[in-house]
């Protein structure tokens, strides 16, 4: 028998990582400060969670300069989309 709990992705257990994936799954290229405002978290906290998502290959990073200020934006990868989609389906099937 398939156990849906096993399909829950440990990478998305934290509230912040779940939030980042939610925002990126419906928006293209979101910058750091917008994410910070949407999720209401501190710089350091967000940065460390983003790094772990990036290491897992769930999101891609773009660094650019806008008005001489560095701006870092994030986009979800195919792998991230798939992983997050599976996590969502697992959550839903657990609640049925």
């Amino acid at each position: 028998m398939d156990n849906p709990i096993k399909k829950l992705n440990k990478d998305f257990e934290s509230r912040v990582r779940l939030g980042v994936m939610s925002v990126l799954s419906v928006n293209e290229w979101v910058d750091f400060n917008t994410l910070k405002d949407l999720l209401e978290v501190t710089d350091g906290n967000l940065a460390s969670h983003i790094r772990s998502l990036e290491t897992n290959g769930y999101l891609e990073v773009k660094k650019q300069f806008v008005a001489r200020k560095p701006k870092t934006s994030y986009n979800i990868t195919q792998k991230g989309k798939r992983a997050f989609g599976e996590h969502l389906s697992a959550l839903e099937s657990l609640l049925q």
Partner: peptide, 22 residues
Amino acid sequence: KKTEKHLHDLNEIRQIMERSTK
């Protein structure tokens, strides 16, 4: 308890998606 957390997670995902696009 677990179910509650899952429900909470799903609600939060929905809210964040809406808040970030609307």
